[in-house]
Design a protein around this nucleic acid. Structure first.
Length: 574
DNA sequence: TTAGGGTTAG
């Protein structure tokens, strides 16, 4: 029997598998031998297997064992149709075949791949009934599925109730929290892990760096960098990439480049992409393009993400010609433009006022344009006050069922710029009818190690009265410098003064005002916002940086704005 | 627990 197993291990092609299968079948080993499921295993998965052949072998088994099912289910997880695994699992249950921990593990993997939350919960119930909850590996798989489908509550519960936890269980939850908008909780869990005496490994630091990246938490990020250096985890390319990403997202593009330049291991495609994106976020289009050119010398082929990063860099730096050239040549380099590339180039042309070209690109697309493209065009129409194009864009947005408040506001802004008040009213009415939802904007700022979060018009901070009076003072002082509120961004049919108030209490302004009153003179202020910064806030923060002699850094959804002496690093182009 | 399963960067 052992020599059969070693034969299976020596398989290096699909034809070997077929020969072995024929041999098994003719020698009678097939119906009884346990090596059969080894063969099925090999056959059901890459690199040279064939799932359909594995299934046809399976069909010839008179009484399949659990292991035979497991081989097929495992193959299905990696196939283009992972959901088929659920049907096989049900077949096992119905046919009273024995489901074991591996069956559950593979089927859970299928849930993770297709984000099937309901199936995951059903499997969880089965796993409890079968008494498999003590299995640490299965528990980790389960918590990982919950984290992937965004059910962090259940992920945490599984984790808390696991009788055995090891480093992978911790890593899985830390990662899930970091990716699921609970980055602070990820850092807390990381600290708890250290308290409990577990030593972080390279996967742990990947998760924690990702959390720091989301939060812009430079201090924690730097501590982790030190740990990484001490433990020599920076010989791992993924860890280096995560470090670059962390520094870039904290606004320290130089430190990101320091890591990039001084890597003790081989750079991979992701390394280059991360660094190009870092320059893009910083608004340094030329450096991004330079790096892109260097890839050729390093013999690294750019992929679709590389192109997205350079297009993004061109976009943020106003390098319109470079961006268009790259977009037009990417196909020749074997990278087919996807929706995001189209989105980027439409945005680039739109911001440059080349609305017709942007529109032509949308029409030339081989796929149906998504809402983001029309939103970009509409945004450009607002800047260039193009009513005709704005109407085309909005019509498409409405047809696509967009219920985004911002779309309506933009259209209304275009009408307002032409003083077409009836149309403004019409847009507002249709907003009410459609019950449009607005994604709440928020900003946060860290002072003395504590993160403070602000929503628009927020009064939940203990110092809210001081914050609002600081904003009054700011308003008074910037008006002396000739500031006029950009109220066309407020849709509501209210008086000018009230409009100004609404703008005045945007979350980024609240955070900056809080920074001013809570830190000593000259201390730089760093704010992170979940959406893009608004035009009025941009103007106001520039003036604040001049009047109060403060460096203010705002990271919005896509890039950094570094305000100093009344200017912003984005040169008002973003 | 005697085959195999869990965590991972842009």
């Amino acid at each position: 029997m052992a020599d059969l197993e070693s034969l299976i291990q020596k398989c290096t092609s699909f034809s070997h598998i077929k020969q072995l299968q024929a041999y098994f079948f003719t020698t009678g080993n097939f119906q009884s031998c346990r090596t059969r499921s080894k063969l099925l295993d090999l056959c059901a998965i890459a690199p040279f297997g064939s799932l359909s052949f594995a299934i046809s072998i399976f069909r010839q088994i008179r009484t399949p064992f659990t292991n035979d099912f497991n081989a097929i289910i495992r193959g299905l997880v990696q196939s283009p149709e992972p959901t088929a695994a659920f049907a096989w699992y049900r077949t096992m249950q119905r046919g009273s075949f024995r489901v074991d921990a591996l069956t559950c593990s593979f089927t859970l993997k299928a849930c993770a791949r297709v984000l099937a939350a309901t199936e995951a919960r059903q499997l969880h119930a089965n796993i409890m009934r079968l008494g498999f909850m003590a299995d640490a590996l299965l528990g980790t798989t389960l918590l990982n599925v919950y984290a992937k489908v965004g059910d962090l509550g259940r992920a945490r519960k599984v984790f808390d109730e696991m009788p055995q936890r090891d480093i992978a269980s911790w890593n899985s939850l830390i990662f899930g929290l970091a990716q699921g908008n609970q980055a602070s909780e990820a850092l807390e869990l990381f600290k708890r892990m250290e308290v409990e005496g577990l030593k972080p490994n390279e996967v742990t630091v990947l998760g924690v760096l990702s959390a720091c990246s989301h939060l812009g938490d430079f201090k924690e990020g730097e501590k982790i960098h030190l740990f990484i250096r001490n433990e020599k985890l920076d010989l791992n390319v993924q860890v280096c990439n995560a470090l670059i990403d962390m520094y870039a997202n904290c606004g320290f593009v130089d430190k990101a480049y320091g890591v990039f330049d001084d890597m003790g291991c081989r750079k991979c495609l992701v390394t280059w992409n991360t660094m190009i994106m870092a320059f893009a976020m910083d608004g340094n289009g030329l450096k991004a393009l330079q790096l892109f050119q260097q890839m050729d010398g390093a013999r690294v082929q750019p992929d679709s993400v590389t192109y997205l990063a350079v297009l993004c860099a061109c976009n943020h730096a106003g390098l319109v010609e470079d961006g268009v050239r790259l977009f037009n040549t990417m196909g020749k380099h074997g990278v087919k433009p996807n929706m995001k590339h189209y989105g980027s180039v439409v945005d680039l042309l739109g911001r440059a006022g080349r609305l017709k070209e942007a529109y032509n690109i949308i029409n030339s697309m081989p796929m149906v344009p998504d809402v983001v493209l029309w939103q970009s065009l509409l945004g450009a129409c607002r800047i260039y006050k193009d009513v005709e194009m704005a109407e085309i864009a909005s019509r498409n947005l409405v047809e696509m069922g967009s219920n985004n408040c911002g779309d309506f506001v933009l259209l209304s802004n275009v009408y307002a710029a032409h003083e077409r008040w009836n149309d403004v009213g019409r847009v507002r009415d249709s907003m009410k009818k459609r019950d449009v939802k607005k994604v709440p904007g928020f900003s946060y700022i860290e002072v003395d190690g504590l993160r403070h979060k602000f929503f628009t018009g927020d009064k939940s901070n203990a110092k809210w009265k001081e914050i609002y009076s600081k904003l009054d003072e700011i308003r008074f002082r910037i008006k002396e410098l000739g500031y006029v509120a950009e109220t066309s961004f407020v849709l509501h049919d209210i008086g000018e003064e009230e409009k100004e108030n609404q703008l005045c209490h945007h979350s980024e302004k609240l955070a900056v005002a809080f920074g001013l009153i809570s830190t000593s003179e000259g201390t730089p202020i760093q704010v992170i916002k979940n959406l893009r910064i608004c035009v009025d806030c941009h103007v106001v923060i520039k003036l604040i940086s001049k009047i109060y002699e403060r460096q203010i850094i705002v990271r919005d959804r896509v890039r950094f704005h570094k305000f100093k002496d009344g200017f912003c690093s984005c040169r008002d182009y973003w």
